[in-house]
Structures are given as C-alpha cells and as structure tokens.
C-alpha cells in the first residue's frame, strides 16, 4: 500500500515573518546564499522563490480601509500600491486590501478581535489601518504538476508521498520545467545549470521526519501532514476565522477541482493571491496538451497538404512554371 499523500498547510494568519523556514530549509538542503540585496520590499530581501530559495516569506504592508483618518497627519506624496517595484516607490509600497468593501467604512474598531488572525494596527490613515501580512511561500507540489509533466529526462518525478521532486543526478538543465510552472517556483541555479526547488524534504519524510521548514516554524504557520488531514484542519480553521469576523481569510490551493487539481502545499491567505505574488487561477499547462497536439497535427497536415498541393499544382518539371 502506498503511503498517504503528504503536504503542507501554510496558515499565513499566524505567520510572524521570522523566516526560520527559509533558513532551516537552506541548512537542511545546503542551498547556496541567494545574494545580498536590500530590496526595499518591506522586510523581504529574498524577493521570491528561486533555485536558491525554496521557502520564501512575503511581507506586505497594507492598509485596511476602515474609513477613519488620523487628524493632523497628512500623507505627503503619492503612495503607490504594493505592485510598485520599490525603486519606483517613494516608500515601502502599501496597498488597500483588494477585497475591502466600502461597507467596512465603519468607525475605527479598537476592540480586539477574539483570537483572530493578525490585527490591523492602531495607526490609521487615509487608506485605513495598517496591517502587515506575512506568508511563507513554497512549491505547491501540484496534483497536476506542469514541471513534472514537461520534464523530458525524468529528473522530476512524483514520489510515493505524492510530492514532486527533482533528481539532481538526472537533471540536465534543459530548463523546460521553469516556464511550465504556473507559480514560478522551480528555477535554474545559474552556476550549476540544473533546476532546483523544494523537495518537501523527500529524504526526511522517508524516515517519518517532518520537513525542515515545518519543523522549525515557531507558530505552526507551516503544518505538515497527510493532505486529507490538512484539508480538514484548514476547513475548520477557515470556519473559525469567518465565525470571528475575519472575513478576509480564504484558502488557496486546497480545491482538488482547481486548475492544477489542488496543491499538495496549500495556504490560508488574508487577501487575494496576487497580493502575495500568487496566480489567482493557475492552470496546469498540460491540461490543454491534447488540444495543442490536435492543433499541431492540423498544422502539420496543413503544411503537408499545402506543399502537396503546391507540387501537385506545379506538376513535374517542364510542366507549368
């Protein structure tokens, strides 16, 4: 009997942005340093998942409009949203939550939300109160994994735990998996040539150990376990959050009917996925592959037929010129 499918449930509502996951991952997998660059993207200086960053903590400074301005404090200058590259921004870009409704323009709520997720801050301004979202991103270990599907060498394979792993002794660096990933996870290590990504600690889980990131996570924002259990837990959590009024909370990647057949690593987010740099509706590219082949076949036949027609029309040499 094959073991249960294992995965991650990353509950960003309790993430404290400590980056222990990033470091624990690097220590375990001996991943090279990813560059020393101050990005100005809040406290995120690793920018995103890459060949050398398999766990990445996003930081989003955000205004939650609640419709009350701080008297006497003017916000000078334009304040762009978090989609603005830091170099073009006059400050760490903040953005109103994308789903905030005008109906929430209620007087500033100082009553703490009962064991809710992160609070919005006391500081209010024209955009509302400030909140600071943090989220640890990772390879999604998709049910239908584009990277795995397109890999021509079998370097990528699906393990007995349902995870997707690159075999470093096989990968020849063709690079096909890289644009195939709808999440922009897998990437090529420049001086190495091969593609790298999270293995969900394939070596560790094989011995019943917890992946390095989940083990280190101080607040259990990253939870590891059988996917079925995680999904049940997540459903419970989201209900509880909704019950206490955290209406922003939503699950991402939990649905087996989504474009990638559900993620092995899914998330609880407090805003739209794209705010965190995640695609809102990812689809495995190979879903359309049969149709692609059909179109390609038609095109090939068009080529064959077209040329046959040309030659048929022109006939043998000496014929019509």
């Amino acid at each position: 009997m094959s073991p249960a499918r294992m995965g991650f449930f990353t509950d960003t509502s309790v993430c404290i942005g400590c980056k222990a996951c990033e470091v624990a991952c690097k220590e375990w997998n001996a991943i090279p340093e990813d560059g020393l660059k101050l990005t100005g993207m809040s406290y995120d200086n690793t920018e995103g998942l890459s060949a050398d960053t398999w766990r990445h903590v996003a930081f989003i400074e955000q205004r939650k409009p609640v419709g009350l301005a701080e008297p006497g404090v003017d916000h000078a200058g334009p304040v762009p949203d978090s989609g603005t590259p830091p170099a073009e921004a006059p400050m760490t870009p903040t953005t109103p939550a994308t789903d905030a409704l005008p109906s929430s323009l209620a007087p500033r709520e100082l009553v703490p939300r009962p064991h809710s997720a992160r609070s919005s801050a006391r500081r209010s301004g024209p955009g509302g109160e400030l909140r600071w979202l943090m989220a640890s991103d990772v390879c999604k270990h998709c049910t239908h994994a584009g990277c795995l599907d397109v890999c021509p060498t079998g370097a990528l394979f699906r393990t007995e735990y349902g995870t997707v792993v690159v075999q470093e002794d096989v990968c020849n660096g063709c690079g096909y998996c890289i644009p195939a990933c709808p999440y922009g996870v897998i990437d090529q290590r420049k001086d190495d040539g091969r593609a790298w990504k999270c293995t969900l600690c394939y070596d560790r889980i094989g011995e019943g150990l917890t992946p390095a990131c989940a083990k280190a996570c101080p607040t259990e924002s990253i939870q590891y376990g059988p996917l079925d259990e995680l999904r049940a837990r997540a459903a419970e959590r989201i209900t509880r959050l909704h019950d206490v009024g955290v209406t922003d909370a939503r699950l991402y990647g939990h649905d087996p009917d989504d474009g990638v057949g559900g993620d092995g690593a899914f998330f609880l987010l407090l805003d739209e996925p794209e705010v965190y740099g995640l695609p809102p509706d990812p689809v495995v590219t190979t879903r359309d592959l049969p149709s692609m082949w059909r179109h390609a076949g038609a095109a090939a036949l068009t080529l064959l037929g077209g040329l046959a027609a040309v030659f048929a029309a022109h006939g043998r040499t000496g014929g019509r010129r």
Partner: peptide, 11 residues
C-alpha cells in the same frame, strides 16, 4: 510597528 504588532490585537 513590528512583527509582534502584526500579530497583536492592538498596537
């Protein structure tokens, strides 16, 4: 406003 504030009920 720190990472603690982000998780606090009131900063």
């Amino acid at each position: 406003f720190t990472r603690t504030s982000a998780l606090a009920d009131l900063h």
